[in-house]
Every structure is written in C-alpha cells, then in structure tokens.
Amino acid sequence: MTTISQAAPQDSAIPKVRVDMLPLLLVPVLALLMLPLVGSFPTWVTLTVAGLAMGMMVFMMASGLTLIFGLMDVLNFGHGAFVSVGAFTATLVLLPMKSWVEADSVWMNLSVVGLAILLAMLVTGILGWAFERIIIRPVYGLHLKQILITMGGMIVAEQLIHVIWGAEQIPLQLPTTFRGAFIIGDAALEKYRLIAVGVGLTVFVTMFLVLNRTKVGLLIRAGVENGEMVEALGYRIRRLFVGVFMAGSALAGLGGVMWGLYKETLTAAIGGEITVLVFIVIIIGGLGSVGGCFIGAMLVALVANYAGFLAPKVALVSDILLMVTVLLWRPQGLYPVAKR
C-alpha cells in the first residue's frame, strides 16, 4: 500500500508541541515582583492569599460565561443574574438552618453550606435551561439583540428577587468554623479565603479533566473552534449548547453562594455589580478559554489587592489598566481560542 508519508518525505519532521508558558508565569512573577514593593512578608502573604481567594470566586462566576461565549457565540450580559439567584437561593437553606450555621462543628457547617451550594446550582442550572430556551434561542447570531435581551433578563431577574426576597439587604452569616484566621508566623490567613481557594481549584481541575479527558469535553472544545464541523461529524451541537449553558449558569450560582458568604450581605444587584469584572476576566483570558479565564481571574484579583494596598486610587482603575496592558500585548487575550 502506498502511503503519503512515503511520497512526501519533507512532511516527516515531527513538529514540536509548543506550550505557551508565558501567561502561566504571569501570576507568580506578579506576586514575586510585588514582594519588595509591599515590604512586609506577612502583609504580602495575606494580600496574595486574599487575591487568590477573590480570583477563585471570580473564576467560578466567569468560567461558565467564557464557555458560553466560546461555544455558542452568545454575549450573555445576564450572567450576573445567575450569581444573584444562586446567592439568594442559598438563603433558603442557610437562614432556616441557622442553628447548623452557628454550630461549632465543621461537619454541620460543611453540610449546610454544601446543601446550600447544591440547591443554588440546581436552581440556577434549571433557570439556565429556561433562559437558553426562552431568551437566548431566538437571538442566536444576533449580538446586539443578545446584549439587549440578556441585560433585560438581568433586570427582570433582579426585580423578581425583590419580589420574592424583598428589597432589603439580607445578612448572610458565615458558618462558625469558617470564621477567623490561621496565624502562620506573622501572617493571618483567613479560613474562608483558603476554603474559596480550595473550591476554586476543585472547580478548575474538574473542568480541566472534563474538557480534556471526556468525549463531551472534547466535543465542547471542538465546538468552540468549529461548531459546524461537530454537527457534520454527527453530533447535535444544540444539545451541547443547552448543557454548557446549564453548567455555566450552575457555576455562576456556585460563585454567587461563595461570593455572598464572602460579602456576608446580599442585595439583588450582587451579580450585576460583578458582571463588569467577570467580562474583564474573560476578555483578558481569551474568549472561550477556560485556562485563560483562570489566569485572568487570578491576575485581576491580585492586581486589585496589591493596588488597593500600595496605591488605593490606582485600584479604582486597576482592572481596566490590566486589561489594556494585556490586550496591547495579546489583542485576543492570553490564550486565544482557534476559530475556523
């Protein structure tokens, strides 16, 4: 049998796999550069852990949105609604089970928060399904209409939250064993921030494994690059769309619970307020890239924390400055996703 490789010896060199390491180095390099500027090692550790924790929570909220944009080409400006709904849904568990929240038992605290997270993800996942069918489906491919209708969806969701939970702020108590800090040397590491880092890393590793080790994950990655070809291979990309939208919404719900517990006060606008930050993160990361989104979230949060400490006025615009700097370097974000 004649093979093309025999007929074309010039094709035989094995191309090297280029791993783009530069964006991966940004987070540790930034952290190390800030150490002499911050001056105090314990303060630097506290700022860095706080930045990483905030970054992980932002990643949870942003990762679903970047996949939704990458796969479905949908600009969902209503993503923040799922953050708000997730946070408020958690109150349905955390407020009635206040005794579990206040109990000085790790297991009771974990159980009640775990239950709140499960319920929030379930509700936001189902809402995501309805949102995709009713609001998104009629505007596929129409970006301007997507922006208008999804922003409208978010306003409606916020008003519905007012109707259901009232217009007043709702205090959300952090479980007893999640309070306080570990003191290591002179550095104080807040327990809840460490928990947020753990949850965020778990979400990232799970997403990484699903996207790289499962057929569904590979189909999502392939669909981000060329959805038409995925259909030509015999797969129904609309089902993937719905699945990704539900998963993205559920992740936003998870982020909402974590963010709500972090802020300890809920308002209906909690999701809308963070939407701009979430969009900055996914633009920095490269639209559609989960890895880029992860690095982008860490960078945004760390820069905000360091700037807040070193130059509080700069912190007001640090996100925008970071985004401009990254886009001047890589106009399509840190890890641009290949498109057909």
Binding site: T3, I4, S5, D11, I14, V17, R18, A338
Partner: peptide
C-alpha cells in the same frame, strides 16, 4: 488508515494545529 496516511501514526499525539497543510488534509 495508517497504511494510507503513515504520517498520522507518527503525529498521533500532536495537536492537529501544529501539522503541515498536507498532514492536516490527511
């Protein structure tokens, strides 16, 4: 398939985007 397109066996675990035009066609 490798009988037709021997290069694919060699590049089995390479990202397809790193291949040449001919290899991508394979």
């Amino acid at each position: 398939i490798f009988g037709f397109f021997g290069a694919l066996k060699k590049f089995w675990n390479q990202p397809a985007g790193t291949l040449s035009g001919g290899q991508k066609q394979m």
